[in-house]
Amino acid sequence: MLAFLWAHEHQSFSAAARANDLSPSAISKLVTRLENRLCVRLFQRGTRTLTLTEEGAVYLRSARAVMDAMAEADSLAEAFPATLSGTLRIHTMATFAKHQIIPWLPGFLADNPGLSVMIDVGAQYVDQFDQGLDIAIHSGVLPDSSRVARRIGETNWITCAAPSYLQYRGYPEKPEDLLQHDCYHFAFDSPWNTWGYEYQGETTTVPVRPRSTFTQGDLLRAIALNGGGIVRLADFHIGDDLKAGRLVPVLEDYRSRIAQPIYLVYPDRKNLSPRIKAFISAIEKRIVEHPWSL
């Protein structure tokens, strides 16, 4: 349609091509394709100029109306607010939200007063993008899907306890010693309950017998901080406790060096909402400036 309008404006394929950085044959082919689709001839081709046919004159009015409407639609983008607005919907693990999002979220919202954030938490990744979800943040292996998974970091799982517990019960020297200690893990079926270790290239899994189980990682952290026993938690969750000495890692010689990836998942790579782009930029900046790994 544009090629048709350009050809009419310049009265020749060659002039229209020069004005729009195309070849004359490209303009001619586009107009011919349009004529074939409409099953009418739009121009009488002369040796030097083009003349509209009667059908071409009718089509010209409609084509101009269409292009004016497109220009008006494009101009609406100029009216979009420069600041972020609306609601950003996020699903992630409760501990990740508490320890890796909440600390910087007030500042992010203060910089974007028109934006609100709704965070839904759950241990398992669930595809809820068809229900309006914007972003999911989860660790481990994600199911195959058409969604975009962007790796934003990685986490190690640390076996640890409070100094008071270790002073009272002693340090486990090898993974099998955990069977003689008070251990705690999650109350639901999860790979997080598999306490795996590695030594000199060999891996082993300890079938710990938990004294109690909990549905929230923060409850596991709390019982460990209170000297209740040994837990195994992600370093993005307990990194500050380890740095401050409130929790002490054990069996470090046996810890697997294979880190678990953390993914930020969103529905499509193209035409991302400004809200999603701003959040991705903010969380990646936060992770660089405040790494949780020891």
Rank of each mutant, 00 (worst) to 15 (best):
L166P: 09
G46N: 11
L30T: 12
D68H: 08
L220M: 07
G46W: 00
Y199L: 13
Y59H: 10
A187P: 05
I283G: 09
K174D: 04
F4L: 00
S75L: 09
A16Q: 01
G140S: 08
H10S: 04
A282R: 15
A26K: 08
N112L: 10
L233F: 03
Q11I: 05
L133T: 04
E202A: 14
P175N: 06
L133F: 02
P210R: 03
L225F: 02
V126A: 12
R150K: 10
N226D: 13
L233S: 06
A149K: 11
N20H: 15
I27K: 02
I283W: 14
M1Q: 11
P207I: 10
V206F: 00
A259T: 12
A224M: 04
I258R: 07
R64P: 02
T51F: 04
I287T: 08
E55P: 04
G46C: 04
K29I: 15
L219Q: 11
G114R: 02
R221A: 12
S139A: 15
A136R: 03
D268I: 12
F108V: 04
V231I: 14
I280D: 06
L109V: 10
A282E: 14
L76R: 10
A123S: 12
P261T: 11
L294D: 08
A3F: 09
A224N: 04
R45W: 00
R209N: 11
L105T: 09
R150I: 09
R286Y: 15
V58D: 06
A162P: 05
M70D: 04
P163A: 00
A82N: 05
R61M: 09
A136T: 08
F186W: 06
I152G: 10
N271E: 13
R61K: 14
D241G: 05
F186Q: 07
L242P: 04
D68A: 15
S116G: 07
E289K: 13
P274I: 10
H99N: 13
R151L: 14
H91T: 13
D68M: 11
A94Y: 05
L105I: 10
R275W: 01
I101H: 05
A77F: 07
L22P: 02
Y59S: 05
C39N: 13
Y59C: 11
M118Q: 13
T159E: 01
D182E: 12
P163W: 00
L115A: 07
D21V: 11
L220H: 02
